[in-house]
Amino acid sequence: MYVLVIGCGRTGSSIASLLSKQGEDVVVVDRNKSSFRKLSAKFTGFTVLGDATEIEVLEESKLDKTDLVVVTTDDDNVNAMVAQIASEIYEVEKVVVRIIDPEKKVIYKDLDVMTMSPTSLLVDNLIGQIGNWSKE
């Protein structure tokens, strides 16, 4: 599978490293060169230096041949733009986007994009756990 990871922060670099270790073809995009240091030593994919909201950078990253795009920059608005370019314009089959502000999830309504919000995951998990404790 050809996987494109946008944003090489803690989340992006971990996902890229793990998928590369599993044998997937991985390309990571970030606009800071130093971010690529977070990739594991065993990462065998490619890195592309540039701003992912520039169409040239996405083309250089072979967005048109990608099976899965994981969008994890630290800016919700950048993520929304890149996810929609991938899903709506390049018709990438699977697009996953990380959402920092859960209120911004509304933008993905009616779009074929999978959203993940660390805040919502943590809150749901914690509330579920508290519910279990109160039953004891």
Binding site: T53, N77, V78, A80, M81, I107
Partner: peptide, 16 residues
């Protein structure tokens, strides 16, 4: 002056 922000603003205004 930020294009992703502009896109988000317009889409949010339209959709929500």
């Amino acid at each position: 002056s930020n294009d992703p922000d502009n896109l988000f603003i317009c889409q949010l205004a339209q959709k929500e």
